[in-house]
Design a protein around this nucleic acid. Structure first.
Lengths: 219, 219, 219, 219
DNA sequence: AATGAATGAGCTTTCATTCAT
DNA sequence: AATGAATGAAAGCTCATTCAT
């Protein structure tokens, strides 16, 4: 306090982004080992500070988890809503670019790391799942559902249930990302999320079944 | 109380189904609190035995988790393959009854509890996820994928990728079950899994979009 | 009691030497792993009986240790005193055959196993060391000391302290057996106890030092 | 009590000699009760710290035992080798002062406590016996044996086996210390180690037997 | 602001002993 | 006489959190 003209602290160990460094360290460790198997000491070491210092920035281990989710929540929702701007004109094109955005988002490990942690640790920290729900899902889902509803109302989409249809659209891609890591499933090469999205979109657009014998093209 | 020659022996004996009772207790606790937050003492108490007795049947806490998965694995795979018998004749009907079976299966909390635990604890016990993969997924998925491939080959289905298509078919339902609990999402009343399946099937059969007159043959 | 003319129990699992079988099993295990690291269950298994059966013959684990010592105590003392019969005539011959007997005794692992256990476990079971002392040492040592005293009194031995001299006679051999196993010391080949006894006896008889310059042969 | 700003902090800090304090406490307890019967909690209490604090300095209970041996090993070997300087000139004098040093060393309970523990716990921790062997015995014994060999070569000693003779020299004294405590043998007053050494030296120098005139010179 | 020594509750696991059968 | 399931009291060890410095 009243620091006496500090002598050029330009290159001092930046102290105000300590929390962020701690969160980064915690994120990596939580993803790799789970919350319960990660000790505060490990987080401190990974962030390059002492065990005690962690408690200068976070009152408890659980608070680190909360901080992680809080930090991730706003950009994710923002990113999702940014897609809203695409949502104009042809619905097919919108759907295609929407799925594209999702694929890009899920491919970046940083983006999906926090949701994965939330899903995993929801049992022991329900309030965190709640927080995530409020901050992300409750902001993003209604918008997406509204989009579908408009399509139905305008007659572009068939008379489907908008909320349930959102699950049909999103489910395969999200679950794939979630499970492929857990069960070590690698369809062909890599995650092949784009191939999955391609095939999925095809079915959404054209249905699963061949229309009828004579109209079927020979592709 | 003050009942002279007490009719309750200090401990029950010869419980041949102790392992099962312990697994039941563990399952409930693991679902409710997660593996890490469940102590062996809690499992023992819930099963009505002493802490030490647990180790009469399982050599370690982790072995309980494994026992849980082992016990669940066979019936699940069997149940899934039993659906195989439905898989004859019209593919639309097959698909409908297949989804119906899945909905019934996932609605029973007992059935999906173990997979949920496996998914949650995969990070700290990868070999258990592996076990589940080998015992369930590797038995069931190839069969399902083969079914789709036959549909494609016979011309009933459009020229979709069988493996990726399976994700489109299963994804929405499985993810819904997985996330609805975590995020406490209850669409309208209950899980409404049947409504979801209905809407999903509708999209699979007819596509998402209203047919524009010229492209739609005569479906 | 009053067993109704038992139908030829000739080849029945001999039940009355169960205690001995248990002691045998315990001895082996105690020697190999120490008392603390040997569980009653191990003893039972090694003896081919159930855990509970052990308690039909011994009231506690410690009682097994005591039983072990009790069983070993009498024959050891007897064997030692049997050597007394040799103790006649020339003292040099007596000493030589005495050391020979000791060497033979210590070479047999069975004989020295119990004393080794007693020595090792004396801290946690002082009453057992006491028992050994009373039953063995107090019977054998006075006799040996008396022998030495006679030698001194008769003028065959120099004017040494009989009690302390007994330590000089016995110490090297006993310590060698005790430590060679512990420190994995193998002088040349095997324990070479006989060579040690030979050399030791030589020193006892002739002293360590060459008598004087001129009398020394030219080795 | 009701002393406002208590002058006794909840815990002491920065005790750089904590490890030593813990080793001291452990040594006392191991000597009194044996390794297996001493709990980490006991060691902690005896050292005036909490159970957890022990693990700040030693990774395991066994590591305490090792630390104990490591700490004792260097001074013992050093002390032994310091005797080397005495080893010049007349061998009789050397032997006398050597035994004197040993007696002094063994009389100090601190010095012999660790070897006694090593001997006792060798079965369950053979690597510790090995460590002791390497650090102490392998440094000291060759020197002592060499000394004897020189005596033989120079003709001062008779043609004895140097290695085996070392046992004759050391055995009685070491075994006496080892067993007297175990069997609660107290010859007359105290350990009387000096009397033992005196008598032992006498025999080494002059042999046990009274010289019969004719046989002595060149037997 | 930062440290890291210290705490103490809690965990998994072992095992001598008991007892219903 | 014999079993072995069951107990319960430890034990060794971990770790989130506190606090003197």
């Amino acid at each position: 306090m009243a620091r006496p003209n500090s002598p050029e602290p330009k290159f001092r160990r930046r102290a105000e982004d300590r929390p962020d460094e701690l969160l980064d360290a915690a994120l990596t460790l939580f993803v790799a080992q789970g919350y319960a198997h990660t000790s505060v000491a490990q987080i401190a070491t990974a962030a390059g500070v002492s065990k005690g210092a962690v408690y200068l920035y976070f009152p408890s281990k659980q608070a680190i988890l909360e901080g992680l989710v809080k930090r991730a929540v706003t950009p994710v929702a923002d990113r999702a809503l940014a897609v809203a701007n695409i949502a104009q004109g042809d619905l097919r094109a919108t759907l295609r670019s929407l799925l594209g955005s999702i694929v890009v988002g899920l491919t970046d490990p940083k983006v999906f790391a926090v949701p994965k942690i939330v899903i995993r640790e929801a049992v022991i920290a329900p309030e965190i799942a709640q927080m995530y729900r409020n901050a992300v899902l409750d902001r993003v889902l209604p918008f997406a559902i509204g989009l579908i509803r408009q399509g139905v109302d305008s007659g572009q989409l068939r008379a489907v249930d908008p909320e349930l249809t959102l699950r049909t659209i999103m489910g395969p891609i999200v679950l794939h990302v979630l499970l492929s890591e857990i069960f070590d499933i690698r369809p062909e090469r890599g995650l092949a999320l784009d191939a999955l999205a391609e095939n999925h979109l095809d079915i959404l657009l054209n249905g699963l079944f061949a229309q009828d014998p004579e109209s079927r093209p020979d592709d």
